[in-house]
Design a protein around this nucleic acid. Structure first.
Lengths: 161, 161
DNA sequence: CAGTATCCGGTGCGATACTG
DNA sequence: CAGTATCGCACCGGATACTG
């Protein structure tokens, strides 16, 4: 009766969500992207309770997205390559939220290229020839030995393992 | 003492997570991408409890990602444009999970272009000149009147609203 | 087939106090 | 400054039974 262990699923999205799924986690990661490294800076910028923050930082550290390094007698939480690799994902979520949940009056934060000053946007998936590709254009094929809950199916409507 | 209302935050990521944040939600969305439209198909493919599935489908419908339409005496859950727009985000999460949490023996599902048969991958964020852009290259600038919890800050280490 | 109704356990999360 | 320790509520998620 325990909750499903997403990290054991064969679906890459499920495993990613096992790491990133708790609500505060992506905001903490966003802070890290913005250059924050200190506990108290995370805490103040996000307005998160210290015990929750400690738990999330430990979780991210345990999963290899952050590294806790001694620095100036204190600690600093630094992004690992794995954590940095989550940037495209973060950007894609951000763009979707931006385009669908900020109607008019809302003034969301802006994400600018430090070098050019241009807004940074997530690229849309395209084929080599430049044509955009959407959910209708793909087939999800379970690999050999896909999970129990998500059964073997092929073609459209296929399980994603 | 109620949990923080992420949908009221000025951070686009927070608002996106208010919609997508519950663990099963992205998997349900993935099923929809794969062509699933019926309640029982979702239930069987995912191995999710019916009450949870009903709640998630209602949530996604309420937030405009799915549309519940009568079809053949039953109902079908169809993707809206907003739901379809989440595909790039789904793909980005999927790729990250794929590249970091499937070491060797694990046989994850494959996502193929229905037309070309090629694997579909999330594009990496790049500048117009083709140079890749990462978290170090961006500045997050709070818009006017950024949220209370996430205070006004500028430049590196800036709040993201 | 497509859900709804109940019940319950685990836990995410919030508030606060405390420590080196 | 950088956390840890407690406490308690809300709520997610699982199991199961039931209905049209």
């Amino acid at each position: 009766m325990r909750p499903t262990d997403f990290s054991a699923m064969r679906c890459p999205v499920a495993r990613a969500m096992a790491v990133l799924g708790e609500r505060w986690t992506l905001l903490i990661l966003g802070e890290a992207f913005a250059g924050t490294t200190r506990f108290d800076a995370f805490r103040r910028n996000l307005g998160i309770a210290p015990n929750i923050l400690a738990a999330r930082l430990a979780h991210l550290t345990a999963h290899g997205l952050l590294l806790r390094v001694p620095e100036g007698g204190r600690h600093a939480y630094r992004l690992t390559p794995r954590g940095r690799d989550a940037f495209p994902l973060y950007l894609a979520i951000r763009d979707w939220g931006l385009s669908h949940f900020f109607p008019e009056g809302a003034a969301p934060t802006v994400l600018l290229d430090r070098a050019t000053g241009e807004p940074v946007l997530a690229p849309r998936p395209r084929r080599a020839d430049g044509t955009p590709i959407g959910p209708e254009d793909v087939v999800i094929r379970p690999g050999p030995g896909a999970g129990e809950a998500i059964r073997r199916r092929f073609g459209p409507g296929a399980a994603h393992g």
